[in-house]
Structures are given as structure tokens and as C-alpha cells.
Write a protein that binds this DNA or RNA. Structure first.
Length: 828
DNA sequence: AGCACGCCGACT
DNA sequence: GTCGGCGTGCTC
């Protein structure tokens, strides 16, 4: 007799209490079919409701009561969406980020694919309409029955919308108890494979003879046959458009046995309308060749090897990436290319599609569920060899992964905001080790952590110092805005920047103005009593948007008209302070009425395609001055831009954030890189109130190394990463008093256990205290920050987990949400 | 998540 | 004395 085997299953419930592997028996019919990573359906709970689960292990014996163990019900039709490699990755993520196993799985599989139980409600066959009056029904019950008398069924989701109530379980149950309705449960995913019709010629006999068999009057049928003669098979959508035929024509031909209609899987292609310029490999500079030569041996060797390419903007990193990938192809291995965000993605995608055509799949959040799913499937099925995308593309399910490239590796977008708060570099490293792949991090301004690793040998460092056309880096001018004020210039433009813009307008060259704050005025305040207009849901000040005359909360979107009279002291001296991009736009139009001005920030790009439209206009020279936030700092490559103005370089410099210097240096360097990418030398004007700060100084001289030396000393002195490792535990709740109590409770337990481990409390534990954003969307936020020696972090993670789950009789209220961020990007 | 169990207030 | 409210605890 064959040994009965058991599977360990992670079930698809996002509850802390079900975050463990459940054991199931494998029914005979599934033995040999189920393997690790299979997606299966299992009965769960008292009513044996069916839910989705993922096999994480297969074992021979178990240590729980055999009778208690249930059988696996079936396998999901699309069962192999995960692989053993990815399950291992999830297990690692669970440990590393202290998240639930299922959260890690959700992160790795495409959104929308997981099965949700959807209730379908129909009338009970035994229920007679004429007896309706004999039931005493509540208003809601009556509404549901009335609805069901009109239609065959309703779904739970529909009912929720119809009754405008998300809590409808009770009312459904009550009708079920009265035997009036029947509830059917079905597991469904939000995203499905799309199909389309394909028409194919059945070549039984010579087609020319066939055509003559068709009635001469049936002109359309003959046309279709003639077309098919040439093309053999054709998609219904295509032929419909081209020849204006109706489905009945095809149906007739099919009935006659001339053609057949088959359903084929359809790939929704998000870029089908993109006309890409196909490119050939460019001739390489010496430096590029040298870079590639250093990496290729490791591709050949088939071992894990991480590289940091420190290359100035315009040094031609992308061409290096593409040629490396081309080399990888010869080894029939696949590559993932990560880019920070969507603004950058489109230029990168264009270049990759241009070079590699249909071998590229694209993954990012702006795609629809269906599009993303299909792109993911193209990767899964080996139809493509390259995945280009944002953070989550690091999970691309390639079978033979050879390389992961992370461009602009210092970008904060590689760190996830949602649980698990993973960092794409960590995940990429893990995947490359698993697959013996090459990891390539590229940046002009590497993160302090990465650069340190490249100095201590953990990463192989490669430098690219010269710009592609041998252009020099743009000249930087630092303007002390305090001196401007002394000279009587109260405008937001220094004399120097003003003159530069004027000159550019005369010469017909373009200008970019950068400010990292959107809106018109960043806060509204009473000059008499100091009252500041704040969001009632979030503890932050509202930003004034002049276009709509609204005061808007940038965290929750709360909007109201700004007060004309101070609500606190009833004075009329309400003033608008702080400058945002919207105000810059207004001022620019005022000072340079002859210029064509456009603005790019979150407010102007919320409409789909708006961003590409503006950038296209800019590219065509229809815009003289482009104003924007972060999103114009990165990647844009316009040769006619010869002047970049940084309106206020130090907005972030004085924030209580250990990464403030790093962020500022990176931002100035990046924005500066937008200037002088063409034939003409570029110029950058940086306005600041603190021109002596070493960050400004280093940025001016394009001196990353000196910046690094200064900054790493500060990190050491104040015990910050990479010398320390951070953990941020964020507690949120609506009830502030309870939140504070529970947070302190947690901190006390933590303190006790840390003492047991002989940790230096003063150094390690910070807080609890209100989070820098102490209230967002009606929820109060408190946090505990743990700063430790890198070697101690695992111990501390263990302690946190113990407190979270092992505290029987001392548990934390369900009303309090605990979110753990391991190695947070910043403390803000 | 969702379902059963169990303990308190409003009603027949 | 019972119906039903939802707080609590468990699901292989």
C-alpha cells in the first residue's frame, strides 16, 4: 500500500490567527498531481466552506489526530501560478519582514487572481409568490425578495450596492432560514483569461473549388474565403474590421464545413498602439565596453554576483543593460529590469521594446487587472524573456532567471508601502542567489547603504564617469536667497534665474523649474493668532489650490473652502504661506507673459495620458518652461533643455530625517541632470537659504564621493543605517486613549525582553511617541522605533513576534492595527 | 474571513 | 422564560 501523504497548506485568509500551515490528506485521485506550490481548494471550518490554499510542503506523517485531518477537495484549474522557488521566497519574506505567509504570497501572485468566495442568491424553488403576503418581512428582506422576483439571481456584491450596506450577512441568513432563498457559494477570481474567436480554413479540398461551390450571390462569403486562402487563419476582430462582415456570414461558412471557428486565448496588450522605433545595438564607448566585460564572466560562470554601477547621468547605463541582456539571451536566460516609477517606465519601455520587440513584458500599477494578468502570463509561459516594470516586477515568474537589473537603485519607490514592506533590492538579491543570477544596481547617486557595500567588497563596484557624447556636466550656480532678499528682491526668482529664463526664451531653448511641493500655498494661517487651517481627519495643514479655490489635504484628499475669517480669533488676517508648484506657475506666467508654460505634478497628471501629452508637447518644443515636482526630476531626456532652476533646494534639508541629506543630494543631482543633454552645454541655478550646507556644496561640484564621506561619518556618529538597523512599529487606531495605552503596553513588554537580552535600552528603544503624521484619515498613529546593531536585528524581530502572538491572556485589542516596517526607508 | 458558542438585555 | 444582540475563539 502506498503511504498516504499529507500537504501543509497556507490558506487564503488575511487573519493573524490563520497564519499557519494546515494539514490535509491528499485524495487518491490527486496523488502525484499535487506538488509544492500547487493552488488547491480545501474545506475549512465547521461548515466546511471551501477556500483557496497554497501547498507549502508535502509530508509523510503528522503529529495531530488523523481523524481530524480533512481531504483536499480539488486543485484550482490554474493551479501552478507559483513555483517552489517562489514559495521559498515567500517563506523568506515572512521571516524577514514579519508578515503573514499569505501576505507574502499575495505579493508574489498577480493581483486579482486569488479566489474569493462570491455568494449567488436565488429564490427557493418551493417559495410561491402568492404566499408572499403570509411572510412578515422587514424592509430589507422585502427589497431582496422583490428583486429576486424580477431576475434569476443576484450576487452578494450587487446586493451590497443595491442596499447601500456592506453588512448584509444577517439579512441573507434570515431569508435562508425562512426557506425563501438559496445561497450558492462559488469561488471566483477578479481577473480571467480573455478569449477571442479565430476563424480557420478547413482545407479538405482545393479551396478554389470550394469558392465556386459558394453561391455567386454570396459575395461576402466569397470575399472571406478569398481572404482566408491567403492568410489561412484570421482573428474575428480583425476580419470584422477589415471586411465589414457579420458573424452570420462566418456562421454560414462554418455550417457548410468550409471554415471552423475556435476560441483562442487572447492577450490584452497594453502597448499595442505604441509605435516603437526599432533600434540596433549602439557602438559602445570604452567605458561601456569595460563595464560589460567585467560582468559577462559572471554570467558565464553561472554564479550569484552583485554589481553596483555608479554612473553619472548620461553615461549610457541603459545601453549597457540592453547589451548585457542580449548576451544573456544566448544563454537562454531571462532578465528582470526594474525602474522606479511609471514616469520613467514609459521611456525605458520604449527603448526596450524598440530593441527587443515582443520579447518584453511590462508590469506596473497603471495597467488594468486584465492587462497585468496577461503580461504576467506571457512571462509565466515563456513567451517573453524580459520583464520591465516597477517594484513588483521583481516577482516576475521566470523559470530561468539570469539577471535582475535595478535602475536608479537609490529610489525610495523600491521599498513597498504596504505589508509586507519589502525592499525590491532585498528580494532581488534573494532571487539572484536562488537562481545563480547576476544582480546589477545602477545609479548616479547610490544610496549610502549600497555605496558602502560597494566599498567593503560586498558589491563589485564599476564606475562610469564620462557622459555619452562627452558632454560636460552642467554648470551649477548656487544662489543665496537671503542675499536676494537683502538686495530687495522679494520674488521667488533670483536675479540670476530670472535672467537665465529670459535668455533661454530669446534663444528658443527650454527651461525646467523644479519644486518638490505641489499646490499653491502650503499652509493657510491667521497672522494675528497663528491659527493654521488643518485637516479634521489628519493632523496636517491643508494646502491651498488656487485653480479650484480649495484647501486640500494631501493625505486623505479632504477638501474645503479656506476660511475668510479666522475661526479662532475672528480676525480677517488670513494669509497664505509657503510656495507650491501651482504658485510657481502663476508667478512664471506673470513674470514671463510671452512664454508658454506647463506644469507637471500629481494634480495635473491624475487624468490618464495627461502626463504623456504634456511631455510630448514639451518634446516638440511647444512648451518653453516646464514646472514640476519629483516626477520631472527623473529620467526625462530632452536635448533642448539648457536651463534647470531649483526653486528651493533646502525644503527637505532640515527635516528630522536621517536620510534628509541623501535625499536632497540625490534630488539636486537628478534635476541638474535634465540640463544640457543635447549639443549645448546646460546650466543649473540652485536657489537656497543655506548655501553653506555640505550637501549643496557637494551637489554643486558633482562630487558624490565627498558627499558620501561626509554623510557616512554623520551616520556613524548618530548611529543610523548602515551602522544601525531600524525597525518601525506603527500602531494605528481610532480611539486615541486606547491606542496610547496599548502602545505603552507593547513598549513595556519590549523593554522587559530587550533587557533580558542585555540590550542597551537607551540606544535601542525610541518611543512610544506619536508618529510624525500623528493622525491620518481619522486614525491616530503612534510608533516605536528600534535602532540596533545589525547583528542584533534578528533577535529583536524574534522578540517582537513573541509579543505579537505569544501573549495569551495579555493580548492586544483587535481595534489596534500594528504595522511593522523592517529597515524603513526613512523615519518620516 | 466566517461561523458557532455563550453570556446579557428586551420582549412575550 | 426565550429571542437575539454581538464579544470571543477556533478552524487541519
Amino acid at each position: 500500500m502506498e503511504k498516504i501523504k499529507f500537504v501543509k497548506v497556507i490558506i487564503n485568509h488575511k487573519s493573524n490567527q490563520t497564519d499557519r500551515a494546515y494539514t490535509y490528506k491528499i485524495p487518491e485521485k490527486l496523488i502525484g498531481k499535487i506538488h509544492i506550490a500547487s493552488r488547491i481548494i480545501i474545506p475549512f471550518g465547521k461548515g466546511n466552506r471551501t477556500i483557496e490554499g497554497f501547498v507549502v510542503d508535502i509530508v509523510d506523517h503528522i503529529d495531530i489526530d488523523y481523524e481530524k485531518v480533512k481531504y483536499v477537495k480539488s486543485m484550482v484549474e490554474e493551479s501552478d501560478i507559483l513555483s517552489e522557488e517562489l514559495i521559498d521566497l515567500c517563506r523568506w519574506m515572512k521571516e524577514k519582514y514579519l508578515c503573514k505567509f499569505i501576505d507574502a504570497i499575495q505579493c508574489v501572485i498577480p493581483t486579482g487572481i486569488s479566489l474569493k468566495s462570491k455568494k449567488r442568491i436565488v429564490l427557493n424553488k418551493n417559495f410561491k409568490e402568492k404566499e408572499l403576503s403570509s411572510y412578515r418581512l422587514s424592509e430589507k428582506q422585502g427589497k431582496i425578495i422583490k428583486l429576486l422576483l424580477d431576475r434569476s439571481h443576484v450576487t452578494e456584491d450587487f446586493l451590497k450596492k443595491y442596499l447601500q450596506d456592506s453588512n448584509i450577512n444577517a439579512v441573507i441568513k434570515s431569508l435562508e432560514d425562512k426557506n425563501m432563498i438559496v445561497v450558492k457559494n462559488a469561488l471566483k477570481s477578479d481577473v480571467n483569461t480573455a478569449f477571442e474567436k479565430k476563424i480557420r480554413l478547413l482545407d479538405k479540398e482545393d479551396i478554389r473549388i470550394l469558392i465556386n461551390k459558394v453561391n455567386k450571390n454570396a459575395k461576402k462569403q466569397r470575399e472571406v474565403l478569398a481572404y482566408l486562402l491567403e492568410h489561412k487563419e484570421v482573428l474575428w476582430g480583425d476580419i470584422k474590421e477589415k471586411m465589414n462582415v457579420s458573424l452570420s456570414t462566418i456562421q454560414t461558412l462554418s455550417d457548410k464545413g468550409f471554415v471552423e471557428m475556435i476560441e483562442v486565448e487572447k492577450r490584452r496588450d497594453p502597448y499595442k498602439n505604441m509605435d516603437v522605433l526599432s533600434t540596433e545595438a549602439l557602438a559602445l564607448t570604452k567605458e561601456q565596453t569595460f563595464t560589460i566585460q567585467q560582468i559577462i564572466p559572471y554570467i558565464d560562470k553561472n554564479t550569484y554576483k552583485p554589481f553596483l554601477i555608479h554612473g553619472v547621468t548620461g553615461s549610457g547605463k541603459t545601453e549597457v543593460y540592453m547589451q548585457l541582456i542580449h548576451y544573456l539571451f544566448n544563454q537562454s536566460k531571462e532578465a528582470i529590469v526594474l525602474v522606479p516609477e511609471i514616469a520613467l517606465t514609459s521611456q525605458m519601455i520604449e527603448r526596450f521594446k524598440g530593441r527587443f520587440g515582443n520579447n518584453v513584458a511590462v508590469l506596473h500599477s497603471k495597467l488594468s487587472l486584465g492587462e497585468r494578468y496577461d503580461e504576467w502570463n506571457r512571462i509565466k509561459n515563456g513567451e517573453v524573456k524580459i520583464a520591465v516594470g516597477a517594484r513588483s516586477a521583481v516577482f516576475a515568474p521566470f523559470k530561468n532567471l539570469g539577471m535582475i537589473i535595478i535602475d536608479e537603485e537609490h529610489e525610495h519607490t523600491y521599498k513597498s508601502d504596504y505589508s509586507p514592506k519589502y525592499h525590491a533590492i532585498d528580494v532581488a538579491k534573494f532571487r539572484c542567489i536562488q537562481n545563480n543570477g547576476v544582480l546589477i544596481l545602477g545609479s548616479a547617486t547610490p544610496s549610502i547603504e549600497s555605496y558602502q557595500k560597494s566599498l567593503n567588497g560586498e558589491y563589485h563596484k564599476i564606475e562610469m564617469r564620462s557622459r555619452f557624447n562627452n558632454n560636460s556636466l552642467p554648470g551649477m550656480e548656487i544662489i543665496d536667497m537671503r542675499k536676494e532678499l537683502e538686495k530687495g528682491n522679494k520674488s521667488i526668482f533670483s536675479a540670476c534665474l530670472h535672467e537665465g529664463i529670459m535668455n533661454n526664451l530669446k534663444k528658443g531653448e527650454q527651461t525646467i523649474l523644479f519644486l518638490n511641493r505641489r499646490g499653491h500655498s502650503t499652509f493657510i494661517s491667521c497672522r494675528k493668532c497663528g491659527y493654521v487651517v488643518k485637516c479634521p481627519n489628519c493632523e496636517i495643514s491643508l494646502t491651498y489650490h488656487a485653480a479650484s479655490f480649495d484647501a486640500v489635504c494631501h493625505y486623505c484628499g479632504y477638501t474645503k473652502k479656506p476660511p475668510k475669517i479666522c475661526p479662532a480669533c475672528e480676525s480677517k488676517y488670513i494669509k497664505y504661506f509657503g510656495v507650491g508648484t501651482e504658485k510657481i506657475e502663476v508667478m512664471t506666467k506673470k513674470y514671463f507673459p510671452q512664454a508658454k508654460v506647463a506644469r507637471l505634478d500629481l494634480d495635473t497628471t491624475s487624468k490618464k495620458g495627461e502626463m504623456d501629452r504634456t511631455l510630448d508637447q514639451f518634446k516638440k518644443g511647444k512648451i518653453d518652461i516646464l514646472i514640476g515636482t519629483q516626477m520631472i526630476a527623473k529620467g526625462l531626456d530632452f536635448p533642448n533643455v539648457t536651463l534647470v532652476g531649483v526653486i528651493a533646494a533646502d525644503t527637505n534639508l532640515n527635516l528630522p530625517d536621517f536620510r534628509a541629506n541623501e535625499k536632497t543630494f540625490q534630488l539636486i543631482t537628478q534635476v541638474a541632470g535634465r540640463a544640457g543633454r543635447g549639443e549645448i552645454l546646460g546650466n543649473v541655478v540652485v536657489q537656497t537659504y543655506g548655501p553653506d550646507h555640505f550637501v549643496i556644496d557637494c551637489a554643486k561640484d558633482h562630487d558624490y564621493k565627498y558627499f558620501y564621506q561626509q554623510e557616512i561619518m554623520l551616520r556613524k556618529e548618530f548611529f543610523y543605517p548602515p551602522y544601525a538597523r531600524l525597525i518601525n512599529i506603527l500602531f494605528t487606531a481610532e480611539n486615541e486613549a486606547q491606542l496610547i495605552k496599548e502602545t505603552h503596553n507593547f513598549a513595556n513588554m519590549l523593554r522587559g525582553k530587550l533587557l533580558e537580552c542585555k540590550m542597551n535600552l537607551r540606544e535601542v528603544l525610541h518611543g512610544p511617541h506619536p508618529a510624525p503624521l500623528s493622525k491620518i484619515k481619522e486614525k491616530y498613529r503612534w510608533q516605536i522605533i528600534i535602532k540596533s546593531n545589525p547583528v542584533d536585528q534578528n533577535t529583536i524581530k524574534g522578540i517582537i513576534n513573541d509579543i505579537r502572538f505569544d501573549n495569551r491572556g495579555n493580548h492586544f485589542s483587535k481595534d489596534i492595527n500594528i504595522s511593522i516596517d523592517i529597515d524603513p526607508y526613512s523615519m518620516l
